[in-house]
Design a protein around this nucleic acid. Structure first.
Length: 582
RNA sequence: GGAGCGGUAGUUCAGCCCGGUCAGAACGCCGGCCUGUCAAGCCGGAGGUCGCGGGUUCAAAUCCCGUCCGCUCCGCCA
């Protein structure tokens, strides 16, 4: 108190009363009120009079207690103020395109174009500081656990499988390209072969796919890998890291070990492998009840091997208008329509009721535990379609009708994934996780056996029964991490490649270095990667990861700040041996 | 590749259905007044290619077609 201090920052607001001027001076730490009186300091008053919002100034003055009755409890510094002796203007500012205070929202494009102003906003600033703390806690955690942080290259090799690569032309090698890594997957496995039995990295990854609220073309992973471990060891590290972050940053004690549910259970009950379990509306299985129904739509689905499931939206009393809206929603997902039954006090209302027998009605109502006010929403289609439609519908209803318990942190593992699934479009098996995932020990013979089978349906059946030693971590209905025990034996890796339709020549060309490495004493190993952006966003209760990334891209992959991507000079193209066609 | 929502003043929005006193509000900005405010207050003022292009019409922010941009979702994202 009463000591002379020097401050610097931005003019957040100015309140001019004629004779006395108040300036809210803002820096990274917060806001403090500077006061200038004409009577006692005409020189500083003169300067203050000309200040405008966002001018960058220095203030030399004395801190004092505010006069009684003028304190502002809304400010951390609201009980003191700085009496300016001298005010220096370091820089002026034109009127801002949008205000730093956050009362009015601003469109995403404007925010990103003037990101340096957006980042002056309290919430954005806090998000980035929070993210910084996540980095620090993560690094400390892994260091204390004996992990070594090692950087892996960004200029690397394009590999098949997975997402589309961003590619970088090579000047020194005409016609050749580097690819930006989709993840450090292969490098961290090779680090295991190298004997760094505990590795971690906070690292950028790049995937050239369409964007979403939770997807950016470049994003950050917390990546780690360990040797001589089982699933339990890898999951234990993940649980302790997440628990540490929650405790230190949010003061929340998460119960460990986290719950586990199987992939099959997740799909059957929620229609997705990353369910939001903070509300009900679970999927109910009805195929058996309707397998001989007179209702043609249902019966033909069952006959074609499809399934019938429903959601009972309990007590919703949906109106026709609401049901129409829901119908539109499921149609946008590819449903042909929506069958529904409204349960009223003494009757059922539904356009499809007349097709059902008494027995079917009885069994149905029993199965869905129908009560007056309920509305039953059906989906009958191929299994994948039913899961997609009802899984998305469930989420849609949960959000729209505010069923989600936002106070809950629901974190759990999804395990027992199938190793591969059949891809209709590509007409081959594809990895659910990635091609380096270890199958369950007892399933390895099945893979070898499957290679011999000619009949496709039979082959599918066998392959689908093979489970992966993989695990996904789900938080509030979002996948925040995933990993697996990897294949460390060359013979198993070769079988997997073969089943995936990656021929020996291609395997050698694309992954030869990995197969080679597996020959020279590769230890058993496994790991996991967290989506750091998603984790931070969820912890902060934000819907979009753009709000935890300093300079994100728009949905079309554009950076409005720099206007990237952009054309380059013909000279640059020439050096890179690139010709642009069209 | 597909579906939905949006684009009007510096910002956030209303107006659009039903074409014609519909170029509007708030905040911000500019000028003035004001000695205890803190989203200060009061008085006055300036500010628009209604995203862009085409069409319908006597007349288009408003209706139609196309297109661009932003957002959300499906596909895609091992």
């Amino acid at each position: 108190m009463d000591k002379e201090i020097k401050l610097a920052g931005w003019v957040h607001r100015k309140r001019h009363h004629g004779g006395v001027i108040f300036i809210d001076l803002r820096d990274r730490e917060g806001i403090v009120q500077v006061v200038v009186e004409e009577k006692t300091n005409p020189e500083a008053y003169e300067v203050a009079d000309r200040l405008k919002p966002e001018y960058v100034i220095g203030v030399i003055g004395k801190v004092r207690k505010r006069p009684e009755g003028t304190e502002n409890p809304k400010l951390k510094t609201g009980y003191v103020e700085v009496v300016a002796d001298k005010i220096l203007v370091f820089n002026t500012s034109e009127p801002l395109p949008f205000p730093v205070e956050e009362e009015t929202p601003v469109s995403e494009e404007t925010k990103l174009k003037y990101r340096y102003i957006d980042l002056r906003r309290e919430s954005m600033k806090n998000n980035l500081i929070f993210r910084h703390k996540v980095y620090q806690i993560t690094r400390n955690f892994f260091t204390n656990e004996g992990f070594i942080e090692i950087e892996t290259p960004f200029l690397t090799k394009s590999t098949p499988e997975g997402a589309r690569d961003f590619i970088v032309p090579s000047r020194l090698h005409p016609g050749k390209f580097y690819a930006l890594p989709q993840s450090p997957q292969l490098f961290k496995q090779i680090l295991m072969v190298a004997g760094f039995d505990k590795y971690f990295q906070i690292v950028k990854c790049f995937r050239d796919e369409d964007l979403r609220a939770d997807r950016q073309p470049e994003f950050t992973q917390i990546d780690y890998e360990m040797s001589f471990v089982s699933e339990e060891d890898v999951m234990d590290v993940a649980e302790r890291l997440v628990a540490t972050l929650f405790k230190e940053l949010l003061g929340i004690e998460l119960k460990t070990p986290f719950e586990r549910i199987s992939y099959t259970e997740a799909m059957e009950r929620y229609g997705t492998d990353k369910p939001d379990r903070r509300f009900g509306l679970e999927l109910l299985e009805l195929t058996e009840i309707f397998k001989n129904t007179a209702f043609k739509v249902f019966r033909s689905v069952v006959e074609a091997g499809g399934i019938i499931k429903a959601i009972n939206f309990k007590g919703s009393n949906l109106s026709r208008k609401e049901i129409d809206e829901i119908t539109k929603f499921v149609q946008s997902l590819g449903a042909k329509g929506l069958a529904w039954i409204k349960v009223e006090k003494d009757k059922l209302t539904s356009p499809i009721l007349k097709f059902f027998s008494e027995e079917e009605k009885q069994k149905l109502l029993e199965k869905v535990k129908a009560e007056p006010g309920d509305v039953i929403l059906f989906s009958a289609d191929k299994k994948e379609m039913v899961y997609k439609i009802l899984g998305n519908l469930r989420l849609h209803l949960g959000k729209k009708y505010n069923l989600i318990d936002e106070s809950r942190w629901d974190i759990f593992w999804v395990v027992d994934f199938p190793l591969m699934e059949w891809d209709e479009e590509e007409n081959r098996f594809v990895s659910l996780h990635h091609p380096f995932t270890m199958p369950r020990e007892e399933d390895i013979p099945k893979l070898k056996q499957a290679l011999e089978i000619e009949d496709l349906e039979e082959k599918k059946k066998l392959v689908h029964s093979v489970k992966a030693r993989a695990y996904d971590l789900v938080l509030n209905g979002e996948e925040i991490g995933g990993g697996s025990i990897r294949i460390h034996r060359r013979d198993i890796q070769e079988v997997v490649f073969k089943l995936l339709g990656i021929g020996e020549v291609e395997a050698q060309e694309k992954f030869g270095f990995l197969l080679e490495a597996l020959k020279y004493g590769a230890p058993p190993h496994g790991g996991l990667a967290f989506g750091l952006d998603r984790l931070v966003a969820i912890m902060l209760g934000l819907d979009s990861i753009r709000d935890v990334i300093a300079f994100p891209k728009t949905q079309r992959g554009i950076c409005p700040l720099t206007n990237a991507p952009d054309y380059v000079e013909p000279k640059q193209l020439k050096e890179l041996h690139i010709k642009v066609v069209e």
